[in-house]
């Protein structure tokens, strides 16, 4: 799922400086699961805004709503009747949400309350790790089921590099060297010879580097 992290409350308060009517919009999708943008966090942010503004001597009106998702237009439509009552909209969804809101409601001043980080999964409660960089040409099967594009600091297709240090990446001792893991796994499976095959340089055309992407499913689209 998409993993995001909350922006510091200080940053959010600076964004909405000067606005008196603020709508906080959450999302029941990915950001709920990673505890950063669901109904709970909407209530927390709204309360924090009210307290901070009250401290400054201001009474602000903060509305709270949590949409099923912010990446489907039908749900964005649900804001239709209330959005004009507010001067600012703070979206806790991933980067898609605030943009969908902006597109549908061009007059609205939309602010993001989270920083979207990566596609990943929960490795333990409260800890999410990056697994996928969305390169558009998945070949994890070449590498024992692991992705060096997302998990190697240099995205090497033919690693490891000389910086692999006791299973850790030279960039930081907290980063596992995925190539160390790949080689060990292939060894354990008796498939080390498969790594002898030199992989050609990755074509980044299918990734974000090739420009913003769109996916059209001919059999589904009108």
């Amino acid at each position: 799922m998409i993993v995001a992290e909350a922006k510091p409350i200080k940053e959010i308060l600076e964004m909405i400086e000067g606005f008196n009517k603020i709508l906080v919009v959450g999302c029941k999708g990915c950001v709920t699961v990673c505890n950063v943008g669901g109904a709970k966090e909407v209530a927390i942010l709204a309360s924090a805004i009210r307290i901070a503004e009250k401290k400054k001597g201001k009474e602000v009106e903060v509305g709270e709503i949590t949409l099923e998702r912010q990446c489907d237009p039908e749900y964005i439509e649900e804001l239709k009747d209330i959005i004009q009552d507010y001067e600012a909209v703070v979206s806790l969804a991933c980067g898609v949400g605030p943009q969908f809101i902006s597109e549908r409601y061009p007059e609205a001043r939309v602010f993001p309350a989270v920083n979207t980080k990566f596609m990943g999964g929960a490795v333990e409660h409260g800890v999410w790790a990056e697994r996928c960089a969305g390169c558009g040409q998945c070949v994890i099967h070449y590498f024992g089921g692991m992705c060096p594009i997302a998990r190697c600091s240099k995205s090497l297709m033919n690693g490891p590099c000389g910086g692999s240090n006791h299973g850790k990446c030279e960039v930081s001792p907290e980063i596992d060297c995925i190539w160390d893991k790949i080689v060990r796994k292939m060894m354990a499976q008796g498939r080390l010879d498969e790594l002898l095959k030199i992989r050609p340089p990755k074509s980044w055309l299918t990734a974000r580097d090739g420009g913003p992407r769109k996916m059209v499913r001919e059999e589904l689209a009108k």
Partner: peptide, 8 residues
């Protein structure tokens, strides 16, 4: 931590 950022 939040309170501090909020001026409380």
């Amino acid at each position: 931590n939040m309170l501090e950022q909020m001026g409380i």
